[in-house]
Design a protein around this nucleic acid. Structure first.
Lengths: 180, 180
DNA sequence: CGCCGACATTCCACTGTTGACAGGTCGTCG
DNA sequence: CGACGACCTGTCAACAGTGGAATGTCGGCG
């Protein structure tokens, strides 16, 4: 149920915004952190209004409704942000595959792992590019964006090293099975 | 749709098993990689049977049905394992919170990050314990289990270091804002 | 024998996510 | 003017995942 809090947070950052505005932010800034679709967002804004966590503060042309968080909404948001423990991602597609890697020949397993390493390295380079385009930017949003980016950099580096290490383990295993 | 492939993989490893058997494995070995509930698993086994990827090879007491993968099932499984690119986890609850950390006082933001570091360190220690209980184990399953475990160790270490680094960034920022 | 716990399957109601569809308004460029 | 693209809101069906309840069987222990 974090879409609700993402919407509250964006409204808190922006002061006021329409569903359409929020959708733009979701597709730009939050695309890799918490994607959301139109239908989901408009539905959620409706529910938030019913729960009186946000309210319509202006209506403009083309049916536009500008929303802003209420006092209750702000409270709910801060409670989520600081007091609810973040739910760890329990499912991991790649580790599931690793679990079954013994079912295919070692050479194919090794290829799989090296493929993962390459994908991680590619992601790392992409993020390095983003990092460079960010140097010189100022403000608190740049600070927190930079922190999130650093997570991605460290994550992809970790994944790259781990996958290459794991491939090495398989090679060692194969060598041990066929000595001499 | 990976539950389907997890079930196929477990059946391939085990040769044959009932829904109840599989559920036990999901709760033990796959709990932190791909959890599944009763209702989900039995439903999936029904669908897999309809699709002729598995078949009932024996019926025992208490309504027990033992399943095994068919040739088509094995093919489908290997295709998934080696050729379909693993889907990266797109949503990250913690990074979403980081994105909004500018909305609360720096001291609270710092506390949040240090809390995350502590949680990661705790997870790391827990995994270290699992690692120790694994030394001496043999066999290919131990090898791949060890590789998955190593991922967890590196992931938690990375998260711990990152969170402490990030907390430092906020301190530096606060210090820069209030010099002298 | 009677009960209990492990074994074993199935159904239901609910939430979250996705993608497609449908409808309407405003500004501007040719 | 007319068409087009950007703006803006909404509904629907389908599916994955969660949690709980209902139902029944078998083996062993007191």
């Amino acid at each position: 149920m974090s879409l609700r809090h993402a919407a509250l947070g964006l409204l808190a950052l922006r002061g006021e915004a329409s569903g359409y505005d929020l959708l733009g932010i979701f597709n730009e800034s939050l695309e890799h952190v918490w994607p959301a679709t139109q239908s989901q967002l408009y539905t959620e804004l409706g529910k938030l209004t019913d729960a009186e966590l946000v309210q319509v503060v202006a209506e403009g042309g083309r049916g536009r409704k500008a929303y802003a968080v209420t006092e209750a909404g702000r409270k709910e948001f801060e409670h989520w942000l600081l007091e609810e423990p973040p739910t760890t991602n329990r499912r991991n597609d790649m580790l599931l595959r690793v679990f079954f890697l013994g079912l295919v020949p070692p050479e194919q397993a090794r290829e799989f792992l090296l493929g993962r390493a390459a994908a991680a390295a590619e992601m790392h380079e992409r993020l390095r590019g983003v990092e460079e385009s960010l140097t010189g930017e100022q403000g608190p949003l740049a600070v927190h964006g930079r922190i999130a980016l650093e997570w991605g950099l460290r994550y992809s580096a970790m994944q790259d090293e781990w996958a290459r290490w794991a491939a090495g383990q398989l090679t060692a295993e194969g060598a041990a099975e066929q000595p001499g």
